[in-house]
Amino acid sequence: MLAFIAAEIPRLFTIYNVILLAKAAVTTLSLSAVGCVVGLLCGTLLTLARMSRRRSLWPLKALAFLYIEIMRRIPFLVTLMTFYFGAQVLGFNFSPLEIAFVSTSVISTAFVAEIVRTGLQAVKASQIEAAEVMNFSVWQSFWLVRLPQAWPIILPPVFGYFVLFIKDTALASQAGVLELTQAAKILNTKGFSASLVYATVLLLYFVISYPLARLGGHLEKRLGTARHSRSRRTV
């Protein structure tokens, strides 16, 4: 059997198939990256809403809180399928890739929001008080004092989350997105042995994820200020 599978290898790595896999790998990476970038933007907004001290904003605060707590407790596959089938029944004509981008963004917003909150809260209250007595507005103290001190704490775990999320995006294959896992399925239906194509893709994921994970660890050490290493997701 092994010899039989080994004989497939030259056939598998034709230029056409390599390009297919390379494109799929880019899609895999961009799914996670888009999720994290959108997550960073929306997550920051959610966190700001959640941390706001203005009384009149309480409905927004409650919504932000609920969103963050609830979205982290729904499987990615279920979120993805909600959007996938939801778009169908509502008659929206979204491509699978668009559906996947929305899903990854919606999920990572909740996870990244928590990382952002930890980072922003790590900035001492006394720093903000000092800004306040010198007549900084809320926004000025956020932009000039809080954010510059928080981002070295926030970035490493967000990067860690990005690496972690790369693996979750394998589920996007269920919506028909042509990322690595879907590419394996396609090659499988083209007649290549399942063991060969899935092992190949498994290896590709490893080649992508492992160096990035190491880089993330390095980043965390270098920016050092991170008081809590949060590259693992916490629910």
């Binding site: 006394s126 720093q127 008080e129 000092a130 000039l144």
Partner: peptide
Amino acid sequence: RRARNRLAIVFQQYNLFGN
């Protein structure tokens, strides 16, 4: 705001902006 424009405070823990 006007009052804070006319006074300044130095804290026990300095509270210089770390960034």
